[in-house]
Design a protein around this nucleic acid. Sequence first.
DNA 1: TTGACAATACCGTCCGGACGGTACAGTACG
DNA 2: CGTACTGTACCGTCCGGACGGTATTGTCAA
Lengths: 178, 178
Amino acid sequence: MTRRKNTRDKILKAAAELARTEGSAHLSLDAVAARAGISKGGLLYNFPTKAALLKALVQDHIESFGQALEERVAAGESRPMAAEYFRLAVEELEKAKQPPSGLLAALAEDPELLTPVRQFNRRLLDRMKEGSVDDASVLVLFLALEGLRCQKLFGTEVLSAGERALVLAKLGAMLGEP
Amino acid sequence: MTRRKNTRDKILKAAAELARTEGSAHLSLDAVAARAGISKGGLLYNFPTKAALLKALVQDHIESFGQALEERVAAGESRPMAAEYFRLAVEELEKAKQPPSGLLAALAEDPELLTPVRQFNRRLLDRMKEGSVDDASVLVLFLALEGLRCQKLFGTEVLSAGERALVLAKLGAMLGEP
DNA sequence: TTGACAATACCGTCCGGACGGTACAGTACG
DNA sequence: CGTACTGTACCGTCCGGACGGTATTGTCAA
């Protein structure tokens, strides 16, 4: 079916890299094609418009995170949802994982492209609240993690390693004892 | 000295509005000039490059927030810094204040333009930690608020009014009793 | 006080280049 | 044969920025 079955992934990866390194305003189709090592025609074959590319970037991000989360929930020892989310989010933060700068490009192009993100977050929040005794703690946890991720996304990370450890410990404690 | 002393402010305001309504990728000099009711030449006179305009947008945002905070600290009944920050941030969120979308435009154009934001946040954090008994709570407060503001900025607000009240109450309580 | 000049604060136009997107002929794998 | 591209050529638009012009105001020597 696919000569290079992963062309699509190569494109998505290239786009994400470019958004990260060049600033999302400079994410052009030409640049993406060049970085992905394909022709512009090939790029447009896979994604007929720039909006389609950005949409896929957003979708890809949500799905990969959602899938990782689901795996943990399935494999986990029936820990509450919030705990799994907490662990996963921290891990992604910790292991120098690149920020999903594609989201920024999508947001810049058209704010509505982030609608799936909002929906994903809402569903996530609902599931976390279900499996918890203390809604307020879950909300604080969610928001604080969101803050941490945003700082990474913006490149305005401000906490020292010690501070981050401290705040994560505090958040972890909030999960245990409401 | 200035025929229209507030031309600069008009430009900044126009730019912020456009970034918000059109998506920051479509923030062009022509559009800003038109929205501000001046010519492109006049715009370039005030801000010789687009980067200069965005930089001013960032600076403006930081300064207006910083100033509001300073006023409260000066006028306040020697409440801790974190409490003042908390109140101010909540107020800005509550009163349907427009998100500072100019920040997104700046970030898209060149991530380094946000350096002043990082510096401001770092100083703010240090001052909040000074006047506090529990560093961890301050950090959680700061991050959760940051999360809330980012959601507004991204247009991915996900909390219901009730949930927001709940989380704000919880954060307020953390300030009081560590 | 006035005439000469300069500084300020803009206006309006133009340009080279880049961008998103189209079109289409060719090609190589399976 | 069809799928999955490559490669090239091109179009219309928009963008950042440069530039020359101009009206108003300020300064200051004669």
